[in-house]
Design a protein around this nucleic acid. Structure first.
Lengths: 200, 200
DNA sequence: AGGACATCTGGACGAGTGTCAAGAATTGTC
DNA sequence: GACAATTCTTGACACTCGTCCAGATGTCCT
């Protein structure tokens, strides 16, 4: 029994390891240019092992998307919990977004790439939608807590608020990866202003 | 002379014809799954002719993106010119967005796909940025005119306003292509509310 | 009509793809 | 240490890809 569990764990652990290498490769090359052999070269294994752990490429990518989800919501909750005033929350949240914009730029561009793929490939849709829901929840918590702190109420449905922040972030990412050095600072300003705007 | 001009025109016309077929193919399959042979099958020519009119695939795709730009800003200006009250402009603009969301869904998903590609492929960046600028201008005109009509002023920089509308549209497109039938109606409501929000 | 040029065809090429399977290497168990 | 199961490597397969080119076809001018 324990031996079997141990094997399953080992199996799952290797799947995660391979998926992480795949995520790294995808974030460097993008979905359209990422091959299984290229992924394998980011590991210490040969390309054949990918088909031992994943049935086909779609299953691997799907697994990657799900795994990305587990990592993507970086600790905004700490910012929420730590903030004692509305302004603290606003600047903290904006700074966190501007920070991940730069630090995790390649992962974020992969997210937008894969989300676009889901517009064509139904196999990715459910997982993409789930990640969007998780991100929307995060925005909902931020806006809700901010409204609490400033004695206001959210004036937009949370789906619209999330769409707004997402749009701001995406434009900032485009600018940042185009070499516009003011991109993080501008995002910070925009996020703070937008957060105030959606609360009244 | 006139003969030369005629030839140039014919050459350019064929380029446009091929690029339109390429756009159709891209909007059906997405960038990652579109090959030159598949594009040629959407025309009455064989695949070799593509290399007679375009040096390589990147030049063809780039030309497509530029061509898309010429079509993308559907006549929102008519809505702007026709509206006599703020409410008219708001409902007209929202209805126009909801309309193109459904009618041109495949073209819109291509736009988001190519914009994501530009996050990885520098060759597309300039053209993508130019299209984004055109779209931002359009949003700026809508918001500006709306503010005029309701005796208010835009409260967000136009880049942030555009990012917001773009985010709303993108989420609506995801829902619409996932089969959510209320997507256009929800977009209409969200756009109207957001337009009022960014004007004070 | 005939020649000159533009346009198009269809096949070939080398490289790269996802997939698979036979066997080597490793690991765990008695 | 020997046997069995798991794990990994390697090479092959049938494709598809972008690119190129020799030659067929079309077009236009004199």
């Amino acid at each position: 029994m324990t031996a079997t569990v141990g094997r399953v764990d080992k199996f799952e652990e290797r799947r995660r390891e391979l998926a992480d290498a795949a995520l790294q490769t995808l974030s460097e090359l993008g979905y359209a240019r990422t091959s299984l052999r290229e992924i394998a070269q980011h590991t210490s294994f040969s390309h054949g092992v990918l088909h031992y752990y994943f049935r086909d490429k779609v299953e691997l990518i799907t697994y990657c998307v799900r795994r990305y989800k587990a990592v993507c919501v970086l600790r905004y909750d700490e910012v929420i919990a730590a903030a004692r005033t509305g302004e603290e929350l606003s600047t903290g949240f904006a700074a966190a977004m501007a920070g991940t914009l730069v630090v995790d730029a390649r992962m974020h561009r992969l997210w937008y790439d894969l989300r676009s793929q889901s517009l064509f490939e139904p196999a990715f849709r459910d997982d993409v939608r789930e990640i969007d829901a998780i991100l929307e929840d995060m925005i909902t918590r931020v806006v809700g807590r901010y409204a609490e702190l400033v004695d206001g109420v959210p004036v937009l449905p949370s789906s619209a608020a999330y769409a707004g922040f997402d749009g701001l972030f995406q434009q900032a990412l485009l600018r940042h990866l185009s070499g516009v050095e003011t991109a993080p600072a501008q995002l910070r300003v925009d996020v703070e202003r937008f957060l105030a705007l959606v609360t009244a």
